[in-house]
Design a protein around this nucleic acid. Sequence first.
DNA 1: GTGGTCTAGACCACC
DNA 2: GTGGTCTAGACCACA
Lengths: 125, 125, 125, 125
Amino acid sequence: MDFNNNQPIYLQIVDFICEKILLSVWKQEEKIPSVRELAVQLSVNPNTVARSYDFLRSQEIITDKRGIGYFISSNSMQQAKQYRKNLFIEQELPLLFRTLNMLDITPDELDKLLIKYKRKLQHEK
Amino acid sequence: MDFNNNQPIYLQIVDFICEKILLSVWKQEEKIPSVRELAVQLSVNPNTVARSYDFLRSQEIITDKRGIGYFISSNSMQQAKQYRKNLFIEQELPLLFRTLNMLDITPDELDKLLIKYKRKLQHEK
Amino acid sequence: MDFNNNQPIYLQIVDFICEKILLSVWKQEEKIPSVRELAVQLSVNPNTVARSYDFLRSQEIITDKRGIGYFISSNSMQQAKQYRKNLFIEQELPLLFRTLNMLDITPDELDKLLIKYKRKLQHEK
Amino acid sequence: MDFNNNQPIYLQIVDFICEKILLSVWKQEEKIPSVRELAVQLSVNPNTVARSYDFLRSQEIITDKRGIGYFISSNSMQQAKQYRKNLFIEQELPLLFRTLNMLDITPDELDKLLIKYKRKLQHEK
DNA sequence: GTGGTCTAGACCACC
DNA sequence: GTGGTCTAGACCACA
């Protein structure tokens, strides 16, 4: 994992974990790496991971058990999707809108392109 | 301008110039900065800019006049749009598709979100 | 201000600020001391104050304007009261309950004591 | 046991002992730790404990038998309750009153909160 | 071991 | 100046 400069590292880690949850790589009630462990894996300061975990807990995506570790919360899927969707709407949607406008791609054409891509993926399977 | 790590810098510069054209910041037949000039502006090696210009010429987006400099070609708009659109389909569309799937956003919902964002922009004007 | 050891300093600062708001010492839309300023006043590390402010912002009690400072938010009164009330119920109520039980003070007697104290206060005015 | 700064330590020890009596941890006529013993337990100066014991004797909560030690007096329960109740009224009640006022909690609401908490406790048993 | 907190000091972007 | 982030290293309570 390498970090870009546009967004704080701790939020990039939050995203990284949200994806793990949304793609069911990390499942409900499962223990996740300890603060120190993940910090070593990602080559960042433990405080930075702690900040990510603190943020995820405030969003009720993970829960902590003192002296034991952090766990994916039972309603993580819903919470993570909610958080990530807001991010999409606030950050990615404007960029997409700008690109579509610049390239004169109508919503209708975008739909067709998405369907085409989906078929292509299925064809490759 | 800061460069991501995902793509060669010379292609990122190509993109940068395509946007200038598509957003009509640089207009048809207009002279564009010299290789050395732009290299200084972007803090990159002149060779890198030269490679970008070479690529843009091969796409018929710019033309060169020996001893004078590079110019936006007469059909730049169309060519740039074509090039950029291919890029969108090959690179951005798959990422968008993945995100939409992950967040359970249907094409229909995406349309609505785009319309909502458009209205918000107009409202802010 | 001196800190006890039972509770994190950053939460004691949060409490300190909530009181300022609830008692209308700091009013809506008003600028509050900068992170560094308050840190000096309270003789704590700026990071600790930053953590308090970050927490208060997450509770929508204060808002930040980048490069300018923090401000009491418009609905601070309501938010601060809500936060402080939860704290009362979770932390102070159990202690009160324990004391009342230990001293055989019935809710009825507590009411009378409170009324008596109120009258005493009014008498002193 | 760790001491707050608000009150003399010897009075905090008095409180500590009153609680032992009120919660029937130390029972009537029972011998209590010697001055030196308790001083070691609480990591305070023996003089401080001596002062506490002296105060408790003046309140007729404990009695001393020369050369033997201190004992919980026969009417300790009543005396301790009386002493502690005065303390509650003089020190804790004003703070409670202030908090209730600040948070707009009526005596009626306080009653309800206490009942609710009592039920919660019983539920947990 | 775990997480939670705090300090110290650094650099950045914004105004 | 302001807040925001990150690192480094320390100590604590809990289990």
